[in-house]
């Protein structure tokens, strides 16, 4: 869905910098855009329900929490099986992200992706072998890419958040 309501757009823009760290943050957020506290709360609840806001809370930097063994794993799975396998893989508790992406054959034929964030590499490797078997993914070509140095991590800039983050 694309946002069109001017009050929603103003609210999203105000939220781009994050929620104010004051006792009544929703009131503070609404004041410059002319929305009352109750309306701000109701609109945020709605934006969560329709999926414009995916999560509403703290966003952690995983390296700073000691999650230094991070593996992106990709599989080459047939089209007709990918949605079923993706849902199954995405339901594994140790997985932090699971996506289907467009492959780029022949150099990169992989289409099913998952991320596992762990504090040590051995644990990540064990989890990976277990879920590969459990989800029936051992039949398919696979690559595991551990992450090294992070060069840049900045908040994404959206059209509505120009200069926001």
């Amino acid at each position: 869905m694309e946002l069109t309501d001017p009050a929603d757009l103003a609210l999203v823009d105000a939220l781009c910098a994050g929620l104010p760290l004051v006792p009544r943050p929703y009131r503070e957020l609404g004041r410059p855009i002319g929305l009352g506290e109750e309306e701000v709360i109701a609109r945020i609840r709605h934006l969560i329900e329709v999926g414009v806001i995916k999560r509403f809370g703290v966003v952690v930097r995983h390296h700073e929490l000691g999650y230094n063994a991070n593996a992106m794993t990709v599989w080459q799975v047939p089209e007709e099986e990918i949605d079923r396998l993706g849902r199954r893989l995405g339901a594994v508790p140790e997985i932090s992200l699971c996506y289907r992406r467009r492959p780029a054959p022949p150099r990169w034929p992989y289409n099913l992706y998952c991320m596992i964030h762990g504090r040590d590499r051995q644990w990540v490797g064990e989890v990976l072998e277990r879920i590969t078997r459990e989800c029936g993914l051992d039949r398919f070509p696979r690559q595991v890419l551990f992450s090294g140095r992070r060069f840049r991590q900045q908040g994404a800039r959206y059209r509505l958040c120009a200069g926001g983050q």
Partner: peptide, 8 residues
């Protein structure tokens, strides 16, 4: 924490 509030 990288930020506090919504993830859009």
């Amino acid at each position: 924490l990288s930020r506090f509030g919504p993830m859009f």
